[in-house]
Write a protein that binds this DNA or RNA. Sequence first.
DNA 1: GACGGTTATTGGATGCCGTCCAACAATACG
DNA 2: CGTATTGTTGGACGGCATCCAATAACCGTC
Lengths: 181, 181
Amino acid sequence: MIAEAATELFLEQGYAATSVADIAARAGVSRSSFFNYFSSKSAILWADLDARIDELETRLSTVTDPSGIDDALRAVGRGFAPGTLALALGNADAMRAEEELFHGGAVRAARIARAVAASLRAAGCDPLVADVAGAADAGAVMASITAWTRAGAGRVGLGPLLTRALDQAAHARAGAPGAAA
Amino acid sequence: MIAEAATELFLEQGYAATSVADIAARAGVSRSSFFNYFSSKSAILWADLDARIDELETRLSTVTDPSGIDDALRAVGRGFAPGTLALALGNADAMRAEEELFHGGAVRAARIARAVAASLRAAGCDPLVADVAGAADAGAVMASITAWTRAGAGRVGLGPLLTRALDQAAHARAGAPGAAA
DNA sequence: GACGGTTATTGGATGCCGTCCAACAATACG
DNA sequence: CGTATTGTTGGACGGCATCCAATAACCGTC
């Protein structure tokens, strides 16, 4: 309910012009309660993806082989339903939320990149190469999500996009010891 | 002077525990003046790199061939002096600034990735591939900067690290139309 | 050396975010 | 029915970033 109220207001007034107090009022709860359900205003947009990245982090912490990394990354997109984030990406201009989406997306990409790089490093990969490969993988995940939502999430599957992007990113691991192609 | 006062306080009290008012007081200026020189507290750390990314963006907006992109990326690190950012990266634990460095680094990486991807797209590259390659290049730049500073900036050159990282990232462009290897 | 215009600096007020806590309602349970 | 756990609320707080009007410093000109 809070998320619904928020997206309504974002569409009406724009993201930046909508305060947490506005959202709470529209949702019929107090400002305090808002922060019981979302840790911040931007969390409304990113909560779903954040949960999946949490899972990715735990999964990658116990996985070392490259194919396991790819599986874990693909799992991020498996069953990813068009939610608040997709709505925001699709209506970024109406919400005037480009800045927030850019910032938030940057942080999420960095989280993915860090997790992948740590996993590769644990597998004996050169640290610098691990960082580059992690960034490429993270870019692949984020790029396919934005492409998916901007193309009208649901009309096309996220899976194929993700596969193509991750295959491309896998080239960045070329010649990496501990991360054979 | 403001930056010096800030780094002192960051080392003494930590990044989060240091308020803009503290910095202004130590530097002997008013809080208003602080914001005349830095757009935010975190800008103290990132101002130098931001200026270079600004240059990168303008440079890439007039460049389409892949080798030009590589040159522009290498120029980001050319003559990059150990400044506030290097000091923060080197003393991240003492400053308790890991979070800020992570966030700030994520945003800067995303800026670089966006610029590179736009350039590749303009050269006819597939959008998804462009995003992946841009993320890889951005990861290469950021990874080499952090590796450089953590290894004690100055004792080793940034150039070689950057070259190695960008070479690795170049693999992510493999088979990309409009961006031949 | 006085003066007018430009630029730098300052204080203050404002809105909002995110955190904390103590009080209170509501619900489940023995 | 009493109690314990959980959920909700209001309020206060410190901090960030923005704005603006007032003031101070500077600089070339006369």
